[in-house]
Design a protein around this nucleic acid. Structure first.
Lengths: 243, 243
DNA sequence: CCAAGTTGTCTATGATACTAGACAACTTGA
DNA sequence: TCAAGTTGTCTAGTATCATAGACAACTTGG
């Protein structure tokens, strides 16, 4: 690597090295507790100055992914939340199944108006009144994702207040008499976190996020809520289970 | 925004602005053909110098996402490949359905030995001989993803040569008498492209990728091939269809 | 034609990123 | 105890990042 690379990409070299090491941890090349190669060796493999490696390791250490021990070495500590994407998707159940404590937090609830796109997803007319709920979901105090959820304001009046009280979309729907619901099509892509979400997710700027757009339906196929969620990619791994 | 942000994130300011604009395009806030706000206005919204905005726009222009017209404005041009993740997943069919021309290209085929993980996925013993195929998949000459595929060397002898000739995993399997196959569990996460894949995918360093691990089975559930694929996130959007 | 608004180019300055080399401080195993 | 290997700290030089201001070149609409 060289400054040439970083010049064209807009990403600092140390950041590329840090991402490479983190990828190695995610891939299992370095397991939790393992000792990483020495700073000199890492510098050679990435063809980078040792100071650049040190900066990369410092960034990883600050995020709690590795821990440096003077005179000894640098060691790994991390793991990702397995997040199955099924027809029946409930955040609290998924986090609970991972042996962690799920939490929901209302960031903001406000009135909104359906754009053409939102109207199509929810089976409403463009301009229909909506409730927009901005919420954060956590596992053991670690922020996992930010979700923007839209519901019809006519079908779910005061949805914001109900969510604030229940902190759960499932319980909110129960409150309006919805016993069960299913996830329809789910669109996934990746991007870079913006400043607002970065602050909320306690994520460094420039980190990758998984962006999920999905609509939940009742058992008759009627759309209930549509969501736009941003997951901290470094803390989650989606599982798509087929057939 | 300020230099403070870029210092802690390792991502240049102009890159954050470029990502923000690109996200706006992906979200539909700016549609193809639309005129973007003026450079001065963008600079104000991101609280950044106009030169920084110009660098961001130059980067987007170089990637063919926007086009600047002197005296007039800067205009959008882009869109993503919709990639459904189904039980039955065939690259060529997906790309064809999008009205584009699918291509496969063999990068490298080599002999390999099953790690414990690969052996588990393929239902073999650790140390079993494998064929490893590194391949690129394209739509209309645009690289979409790099796949590393592993097959049993005993069940599929000379698989590398067969893939080189057919350039298709489906045709390769047909050659060995496999009429049909299904995708099992699929794991998706996001990361940052490494230098090797960046060059192959014609992607700037630091760009996000979608990482997919999947195993294909025959109709009896016997594992056939297991893959580790890296998709250029900016060129693809996964669709998970449930129910 | 003209004024307002747009992108393109130039100079200049300070802060940050990366490289390079040297040495200190500490741990580990022989 | 000692040598080898590790992380921690310091100085210095070059290239890039970001800001600032000014003006040129061009398009658009009145």
């Amino acid at each position: 690597m060289s400054m040439q690379d970083t010049a064209s990409s807009g990403v600092a070299l140390w950041r590329l090295v840090a991402d490479g090491i983190e990828r190695g941890i995610a891939d299992g090349r370095f397991a939790a507790g393992d000792k990483l190669p020495g700073e000199v060796e890492i510098a050679e493999t990435y063809r980078v100055n040792r100071h650049t490696v040190r900066r990369a390791l410092a960034a990883l250490a600050e995020r709690g992914i590795v821990r440096a021990e003077r005179g000894s070495g640098t060691y790994v500590e991390a793991q990702r939340l397995a997040y199955p994407l099924r027809s029946r998707t409930r955040f609290s159940e998924i986090v609970g199944a991972d042996g962690r404590e799920p939490h929901g937090r209302l960031i903001e609830a406000s009135d909104d108006v359906a754009t053409r796109e939102l109207a199509r997803e929810l089976g409403l007319k463009a301009g229909a009144p909506l409730v927009r709920i901005e919420a954060m979901r956590l596992a053991d105090r670690t922020p996992i994702c930010i979700s923007t959820t839209w519901l019809s304001a006519e079908l779910f009046p005061d949805a914001g207040a109900v969510f604030a009280a229940t902190r759960s979309m499932t319980k909110l729907l129960e409150h309006y008499g919805v016993r069960d619901y299913r996830r329809g099509a789910t669109r996934i892509t990746a991007g870079i976190v913006d400043a607002t979400d970065a602050a909320r997710l306690d994520l460094a700027l420039g980190r990758p996020i998984l962006v999920v757009d999905a609509t939940d339906h009742d058992l008759d196929g009627k759309p209930l809520v549509t969501k736009h969620s941003r997951f901290a990619a470094e803390r989650v791994e989606f599982l798509v289970e087929n057939g």
